[in-house]
């Protein structure tokens, strides 16, 4: 099984919550506020349609918990 959870059609961001440590880097750096904290401070997608696939969240997640699917290849 892949370590990263499968994404759904609605959201371009696959999140592996079991690896997320709620550091908050991803939602602090997201330029369009696609991501936000859930009640535990872990990452959750709050407005998927605004995602520009910039991959700032993916590149700065120290725990490899985020994968942005689609968009331009970096």
């Amino acid at each position: 099984m892949s370590a990263v959870a499968e994404t759904t059609q609605q959201t371009p961001i696959a999140i592996n919550l079991s690896w997320c440590k709620a550091c908050g880097i991803c939602y602090a750096l997201c330029p369009v506020k696609v991501l936000g904290p859930d009640e535990l401070g872990k990452v959750t997608v709050i407005q998927a349609n605004k995602c520009t696939h910039c991959k700032i969240c993916e590149n700065h997640c120290p725990d490899y918990a985020i994968s942005v699917v689609g968009g331009k290849k970096s």
């Binding site: 370590a3 990263v4 690896w19 440590k21 490899y64």
Partner: peptide
């Protein structure tokens, strides 16, 4: 995507031990 570099990690050992927000993982 992490799937592209997954072969270079011992994924059964993850998540790693570093504290929340430690940037060692990024490096």
């Amino acid at each position: 995507m992490f799937a592209e570099i997954e072969q270079y990690f011992r994924t059964e050992r993850l998540p790693h031990i570093w504290c929340p927000g430690c940037t060692n993982g990024i490096i």
